[in-house]
Design a protein around this nucleic acid. Structure first.
Lengths: 222, 222
DNA sequence: GCAAAAGTGTTCCAGATACACCCATGT
DNA sequence: ACATGGGTGTATCTGGAACACTTTTGC
């Protein structure tokens, strides 16, 4: 107990809403809590911020611990600090959200690998703390950003078809998208390019494969 | 001074970018620091979060201490937490921004009233900590929100003319706005209504006065 | 030859933009 | 009568929305 201050300090954590697309669903990663409070309930991955790391570094550390991925899209979402959101002590959490391309998921067999799982947004369990509110805010931000940025590309593997990209939009926006208008709009951005390759999947015409011109970049459009 | 913890805790503050329109300029409120660090330099108003108040409540408390105003628009902006942003200890700040109608400014003669002043965005002094970065982020958010929300109404007194409202847009966006298109668009929203009154100011036709239908509400438009 | 997903253009409509003159008032 | 800011309408452009058929492949 060697940490003493002249006035009370809250604890500060980062929590991360980790999205990916899998099995034709938008999914989030949740962790089953091994300890009280909310023991046995599902919660967002997160943890305390080390005093010598930035908030984003703390979030990336948690992200890598749980998923093994680095260098993915990560954005600060909002800071939640209701006085009673944690029954133990005052805990302020800086929430982030991350987007993981569908080919990168490799759920690290970490410490408590057993209690880690992907959930579709439709089939969420009850969540600990105020994590349901955080998750909903993250989904709202993500859906809003689809309309005015190229954030959806962050879900895509290196090479992808336009139909796959369209499906990402449809999953997040929860509704159908017109194929011809979609292609016109996306190709008109000049932010993806034809790889020259195609992909054959089953009894139909092969699809052209595209790649993002600048895969890490998220542009504001419109 | 007996506040001890099992592991290190950062300090958490709220800082507020308080905007108003005054003398045909978009201005922010700054405070001259009386104590080190950055003694004598200008900084955003802010302070430590009490353990029993929410983040927003803390921000509103600081806001009211400095300006005397309540019930104005206040929105969380972003949380800044670089490890070395304060030389004393690790301090994470949850930044907010507030918009004050031009008739409400009554700069409370508070403790250190002498060291409090409004600055136009063009004539900013050097700022303490990372406050220049915070201020710039707040201005960017504000300008972006003008385009897709009715946030500008938050700067207006109870009754105002369309020319005054247009001027607010021009000041924040730093550029001229077409008068006829502006009036068409604003009136088309049906969010402001004619009061029936007019205001005479000088040697020209009197202007109609309008009021916001729902002054506290900020709508997303377009 | 048939099933299944890929690929491709045109028309229409709504909302944004550009633009110039008359009105009510004070001096 | 003139200077000052208030108030008004139309033509054009542009980007989004609606919409159906042909192509390539595997079986």
């Amino acid at each position: 107990m060697p940490y003493t201050y002249d006035y009370p300090h809250p604890a500060v954590t980062t929590d991360i809403v980790i999205f990916t697309i899998r099995q034709d669903e938008l999914k989030v990663l949740l962790i089953k809590r091994a300890l009280p409070p909310f023991q046995g309930e599902w919660a967002l991955p997160g943890g305390f911020v080390n005093l010598d790391e930035s908030l984003e570094a703390g979030a990336r550390r948690e992200l890598e611990e749980e998923t093994g991925v680095k260098d993915v899209y990560l954005e600060q979402l909002y800071t939640f600090g209701a006085p009673d959101r944690d029954p133990r002590e005052r805990v302020i959490t800086v929430a982030y959200y991350a987007l993981i391309p569908s080919d990168k998921i490799e759920l690290r067999a970490a410490s408590d690998a057993e209690g880690v799982s992907w959930f579709g947004l439709q089939e969420l369990p009850a969540l600990a703390f105020d994590h349901a509110e955080i998750l909903q805010a993250a989904h709202a931000r993500l859906a809003a950003k689809l309309d005015y940025s190229t954030i959806a590309f962050q879900f895509m593997p290196k090479a992808f078809t336009l139909s796959e990209l369209q499906q990402v939009y449809e999953l997040i926006l929860r509704g159908p998208v017109d194929k011809r208008n979609f292609r016109k709009r996306i190709l008109g951005l000049n932010l993806i390019e034809d790889t020259g390759e195609t992909r054959k999947t089953g009894a139909h015409r092969p699809a052209k494969l595209y790649r993002a011109v600048d895969p890490h970049r998220v542009d504001v459009i419109k």
